[in-house]
Deep mutational scan, measured.
Amino acid sequence: MIVFVRFNSSHGFPVEVDSDTSIFQLKEVVAKRQGVPADQLRVIFAGKELRNDWTVQNCDLDQQSIVHIVQRPWRKGQEMNATGGDDPRNAAGGCEREPQSLTRVDLSSSVLPGDSVGLAVILHTDSRKDSPPAGSPAGRSIYNSFYVYCKGPCQRVQPGKLRVQCSTCRQATLTLTQGPSCWDDVLIPNRMSGECQSPHCPGTSAEFFFKCGAHPTSDKETSVALHLIATNSRNITCITCTDVRSPVLVFQCNSRHVICLDCFHLYCVTRLNDRQFVHDPQLGYSLPCVAGCPNSLIKELHHFRILGEEQYNRYQQYGAEECVLQMGGVLCPRPGCGAGLLPEPDQRKVTCEGGNGLGCGFAFCRECKEAYHEGECSAVFEASGTTTQAYRVDERAAEQARWEAASKETIKKTTKPCPRCHVPVEKNGGCMHMKCPQPQCRLEWCWNCGCEWNRVCMGDHWFDV
């Protein structure tokens, strides 16, 4: 396979590697080409510095992935760790964990309700045991953590790749202090920090972006993250068709209702045909949960890209028209025109101005929308079919299609509260000796007794199943 190397943020060049090629071997190839010592090179990928003893497969490097290699003399205490030698983080029983690669970060837990604080980093599902597709590297999971809308060759929703760059020099040479644990960490600028490894760059702020994971991409090709779309790892039924499908869209209502993408497309087109989208002054033209839940309008309007190009163009047109109407304007009634106009409040005669090729020149009556006339309008008909009709959803289907309910059931079956801080902690095999993952707590306690870890627990039921 081919990976592209950008040395000291210059133009990239291809390097041929195998899945079992080590990072140090990659350094040696680059060092020979650039005429520099291999031990002064640092390989940066997806916000993480890659260790010498890791392989291309370990690092989730795919065909035509772009890695950054910078030349920086080692500072005291760094060289041993980078070589894969006596790194205290690798000691058996050590409590410190390697910062998780962005290629394996899962933010789907952050669609849980606000009262489930902490689960994004504490609760991990076991539903990723799908067998890898044919042709994928051994052991590589097909679980997708992110979804994007690819405006490039795909023109559809695709699995996405999370990447990070330095907000100062805009190069992907920043190593994160810690990985993101929720969508806010990724979507809110300057929320996460790190250290830029580019020479002479003092940058410390992280800037995240997404790429389409279905095809090789260049540095400049980015895609918009659709953070309401998630892999259906909890096997929730769709609120409309009641099938279990994946991926799904999880509405931001209190129940976190789930809808499959085909039904979401149908829901949007139906509402669009009836012009029953909601115009929100802050958000724009949007839709609420299909069950009509309060405070559930979709905030990231790129989710409506699921409509496809033709329907999305209609959505944008109707949204612009609705904006004009909300501002007190009118639409030209001549067939084939429909231009938005903003006449004076007491102006009865409205002319669709033909300047700049935008208007048709038609003069019409503001009251009856017919060709302009003197005197009273002959008839004014009330528009028919403008009443909002509820999208029919079966109550039982709505009850079963809740992301929140599956989460709470998982928590109930696989977790116990920490005796000190009461945060839910998952036990997935292993011994009875637990350690609270909350940095402010870190209590060592017994899963069996529910009390602080002691010699009695150690001698009596340390390794009970």
Score class of each variant (00 low, 15 high):
Ala291Glu: 03
Phe277Asn: 01
Ser181His: 09
Tyr267Ser: 02
Leu266Ile: 15
Cys360Asn: 02
His422Arg: 06
Ser145Asp: 00
Val330Cys: 07
Ser198Val: 08
Pro113Cys: 11
Ile236Arg: 08
Ser223Thr: 11
Ala92Cys: 11
Cys95His: 11
Met327Thr: 09
Leu443Met: 08
Ser101Phe: 08
Arg275Tyr: 01
Glu452Cys: 15
Val244Tyr: 05
Gly359Arg: 13
Val164Asn: 04
Gly292Arg: 06
Cys150Pro: 00
Gln155Tyr: 07
Ile236Ala: 09
Pro419Ala: 04
Asp62Gly: 12
Ile69Val: 14
Arg234Thr: 05
Leu226Pro: 01
Ile239Met: 09
Val36Glu: 02
Leu301Met: 11
Cys360Phe: 02
Gly429Pro: 07
Leu266Phe: 11
Phe4Val: 05
Gly139Phe: 11
Cys150Glu: 00
Ala82Gln: 13
Val380Gly: 07
Lys211Gln: 15
Tyr391Thr: 06
Val290Glu: 00
Phe304Asp: 01
Ser286Gln: 01
His373Ile: 02
His302Ser: 14
Ser145Arg: 07
Thr175Pro: 05
Arg442Ala: 15
Arg97Asn: 12
Leu226Arg: 01
Thr231Asn: 14
Asp464Ile: 15
Gly328Pro: 03
Leu249Trp: 02
Ser127Pro: 12
Thr231Met: 07
Cys352His: 04
Tyr315Phe: 11
Cys95Gly: 13
Asn454Trp: 01
Glu404Met: 11
His227Ala: 14
Met458Ala: 15
Phe277Glu: 01
Cys260Leu: 00
Gly135Ile: 13
Pro99Phe: 10
Tyr267Arg: 01
Gln282Ser: 13
His373Gln: 02
Ser108Pro: 13
Asp130His: 09
Asn295Ser: 10
Asp219Tyr: 07
Ala91Gln: 11
Ala405Tyr: 12
Arg455Lys: 15
Glu426Cys: 07
Gly361Glu: 05
Val117Glu: 15
Ser65Tyr: 03
Ile69Glu: 00
Phe251Met: 04
Pro189Tyr: 04
Cys421Leu: 01
His461Val: 01
Thr83Trp: 13
Ser101Glu: 14
Glu28Leu: 05
Pro153Phe: 08
Gly385Met: 09
Ser246Cys: 05
Cys451Asp: 15
Arg104Val: 08
Glu382His: 14
Glu300Ile: 03
Gln282Cys: 11
Ile411Asp: 15
Val43Leu: 06
Asn448Leu: 11
Asp185Thr: 01
Phe13Ser: 04
Val15Gly: 00
Gln171Tyr: 05
Gln276Glu: 11
Gly179Leu: 04
Gln171Ile: 06
Tyr149Val: 03
His11Val: 06
Ala398Pro: 04
Arg392Phe: 10
Asp53Val: 03
Val105Asn: 14
Gly354Met: 10
His215Phe: 01
Met458Leu: 15
Lys413Ile: 14
Asp460Phe: 06
Ile142Pro: 12
Glu370Tyr: 04
Glu444Lys: 05
Arg366His: 07
Ser223Trp: 03
Leu176Met: 09
Asp262Lys: 04
Thr55Tyr: 04
Gln311Asp: 06
Lys32Pro: 00
Met192Gln: 04
Thr231Ser: 10
Ile142Gln: 14
Cys457Gly: 02
Cys352Glu: 02
Thr270Met: 08
Gly354Ile: 10
Asp464Cys: 15
Ile306Pro: 02
Val350Asn: 03
Ala138Gln: 13
Glu426Ala: 12
Gln282Asp: 12
His257Ile: 00
Lys412Asp: 11
Ser10Gln: 06
Ile122Tyr: 14
Arg442Phe: 07
Ser218Asp: 14
Pro288Cys: 05
Asn454Thr: 15
Gly35Lys: 07
Val248Asn: 01
His68Leu: 00
Leu119Ile: 11
Ser181Lys: 11
Glu374Val: 07
Gln40Leu: 06
Phe13Gln: 05
Gly84His: 09
Gly328Ser: 05
Phe210Asp: 00
Cys150Ser: 01
Pro417Val: 15
Asn190Val: 04
Gln326Phe: 06
Arg191Thr: 08
Thr240Gln: 15
Lys416Arg: 07
Gly338Ala: 08
Ala363Gln: 14
His227Pro: 15
Val425Trp: 05
Ser108Asp: 14
His68Ile: 02
Lys211Glu: 15
Ser65Trp: 02
Gly213Ala: 14
Ser233Gln: 11
Arg234Phe: 05
Cys182Gly: 10
Ser109Asn: 12
Gly93Cys: 09
Val157Asn: 02
Cys323Asp: 15
Ile69Asp: 01
Cys431Tyr: 07
Ala214Thr: 07
Ser223His: 09
Trp403Thr: 03
Gly340His: 05
Arg420Asp: 13
Cys95Arg: 13
Asp115Asn: 10
Leu358Lys: 15
Gly355Gln: 12
Cys182Asn: 12
His373Pro: 02
Gly194Tyr: 02
Phe210Ile: 05
Ala31Thr: 03
Asn190Ile: 04
Pro180Ile: 02
Leu228Ala: 05
Glu322Asn: 05
Pro424Asn: 13
Pro180Glu: 01
Val164Glu: 04
Thr386Trp: 12
Ser110Asn: 11
Pro216Asn: 12
Arg170Leu: 08
Asn356Thr: 15
Val105Arg: 13
Pro288Leu: 04
Val423Leu: 11
Val186Asp: 01
Glu96Lys: 08
Val224Ala: 13
His265Arg: 04
Ser296Phe: 03
Ala172Asn: 14
Ala405Asp: 13
Val393Phe: 07
Val258Met: 02
Pro335Ser: 13
Ser233Pro: 06
Pro333Glu: 03
Arg245Leu: 05
Ala214Ile: 08
Gln63Asp: 15
Gln438Val: 04
Gln282Tyr: 09
Ala46Gln: 15
Ser136His: 12
Cys263Gly: 00
Arg128Cys: 09
Leu107Cys: 15
Ser246Gln: 05
Leu61His: 01
Asn313Thr: 10
Asp106Trp: 04
Glu322Pro: 03
Phe24Trp: 13
Arg42His: 09
Ile122Lys: 15
Ser101Asp: 14
